[in-house]
Amino acid sequence: MNDKPTSPLALTVNGRKVSAVVEPRTHLADFLREQQLLTGTNIGCEQGVCGACTVLVDGVPTRSCITWAVSCQGAEVRTIESFDEDETMAELRAAFTAEHALQCGYCTPGMLATARDIVTRLPQADEARIRLELSGNLCRCTGYVGLVRAIGRVLEARRQRNLAEA
């Protein structure tokens, strides 16, 4: 096809204003990886099932493989690369290490995006709730035991801190 349709796109990626021209058919994960060279976002199933590509769009976890980049006009996108200074993510990374919550690491960027959402949105989540919330992120290495423990550990630490502050 010689006359590929293109659209202008302006959005914020990891705090940086970005202007680009994209083919409408480009999904957000490909835009981030191929045009922004942010390869921390992994692509698994490309049909919204596996959760590997989960990033934050306007602060909430979103499947970047089934979200067109062009439909993110004006949005604020955060990928795994932007969380170096994020205290909650640092705590989750330490817990993932301590509880062996990853093996091959392919699901990990999406898992961390979801885990951060769980600990910030559902402070009272118990193990059953953590498992329910993780049902949209597939991990074929760990069997989830380490993941559930890691997220539970951060939730418990946050609850203890809140008690201490209260």
Binding site: R25, H27, E46, Q47, G48, V49, R63, C65, I66, T67
Partner: peptide, 26 residues
């Protein structure tokens, strides 16, 4: 018409749907 695209997106990635154009309603 495109809403959140959470059904249409997968269908288009799998090429079960191949519309000529999307009209984003958001």
């Amino acid at each position: 018409a495109l809403g959140g695209g959470q059904s249409l997106g997968p269908m288009m990635n799998l090429r079960l749907a191949q519309p000529d154009s999307l009209v984003d309603l958001r």
